[in-house]
Nucleic acid binder design. Structure first.
Length: 296
DNA sequence: CGGATTTGACCTGCGC
DNA sequence: GCGCAGGTCAAATCCG
């Protein structure tokens, strides 16, 4: 992480719980989520650009938690990814049945892993994993070296063509928290409502896989999958760390997050229905703006 | 039936 | 150049 690069406190983005997203009411109508300007996310800018607005809009409800946001930003220097003239990359893809076809990659979508356009990284508690107005669809999960927990990959499913993605990983040091990394921006405004299945709970890894072609039915330790939380907004990589967990456990023991649709951590209990509350309620109590909790 | 999840395969980038 | 690790794809399957 290049300290020199950027340093900023993650702010602005926020999360809105699924509750917000209207899981219950079915409607979450943010006035509007200004797409974060891609061009202005570097450095301080991000503090004054769309992120702030996002923060206001999403109004994360990190309730009691006193999350300490520690910066750590690393700007991917656009890097080759952007400048490379490898316009489209085509590569073969062998299908299960042996056939092969080509895929076309759009420049930038294959970003350097390390210089990738990661942006906001935040550690949240489980309950906050469910907070996000966006609809995400899980498209992969990978065990991460050094971590007992796998990392789940989500892409925005609110709109086709939206490149927004996020990675959710359970914090090895603090299993109660998840590290969420957002990449790319949403090419659309916050959906007024989630996709069909959004808000529904999918049986926990109810997939013993009868035994088909592949899929040995291996079950990964746990999938920190989960739900969304914040929205990002920039290309830089912001690492938010160190937070407290306190209330988390309490919450867990009592209620648990309601299984929101698409991304309930498969390793987490997903039933219970008991969500913190409704959007307004939370909003009234506090806001998480610019990385800080604002109590009203 | 449409959309989400699971999961093995495949691809790329990076480090040695 | 090779191997590893991480990221993405897509078929199969599940679920409302």
């Amino acid at each position: 992480m290049d300290e020199g690069d950027l340093e900023a406190v993650v702010r602005g983005y926020s999360s809105s719980s699924d509750v917000f997203s209207g899981k219950s009411s079915g409607e979450f109508s943010p006035s509007f989520c200004p797409p974060v300007q891609t061009a202005s996310f570097y450095g301080q800018e991000m503090e004054t650009t769309g992120l702030d607005e996002l923060g206001v809009l999403y109004k994360p409800f990190y309730t009691s938690s006193t999350q300490t946001l520690t910066k750590s930003v690393s700007v991917p220097e656009d890097s080759k990814c952007f400048q490379d003239d490898k316009k489209q990359r085509t590569y073969g893809c062998l299908l299960a049945n042996g056939s092969k076809f080509n895929r076309i990659r759009i420049p930038g979508s294959w970003k350097s892993k390390k210089n990738q356009q990661k942006r906001v990284v935040e550690q949240v508690k489980e309950e906050n994993l469910l907070s996000d107005a966006w609809a995400w669809r899980k498209y992969g999960q990978k065990p991460i070296k050094g971590s007992p927990y796998p990392r789940s990959y989500y892409r925005c499913s609110s709109s086709k063509g939206c490149l927004a993605r996020k990675q959710v990983e359970r914090n090895p040091q603090n299993p109660e928290k998840f590290t969420i990394t957002y990449t790319n921006e949403h090419a659309h405004e916050i959906p007024t409502r989630r996709n069909s299945l959004a808000g529904t709970t999918r049986a926990k890894s109810s997939k013993p896989k009868p035994s088909i072609t592949k899929k040995s039915g291996k079950q990964v330790v746990s999938s920190p999958t989960s739900n969304h939380v914040i929205t990002s907004g920039d290309e830089s990589s912001v690492v938010v760390q160190a937070m407290e967990v306190a209330e988390m456990s309490a919450y867990l023991t009592t209620g648990e997050i309601e299984g929101t649709s698409n991304n309930l951590p498969t390793d987490l209990p997903s039933d219970t229905g008991h969500i913190p509350s409704d959007f307004d309620e939370i909003l009234n109590s506090q806001e998480f703006i610019n990385g800080y909790l604002w109590n009203y």
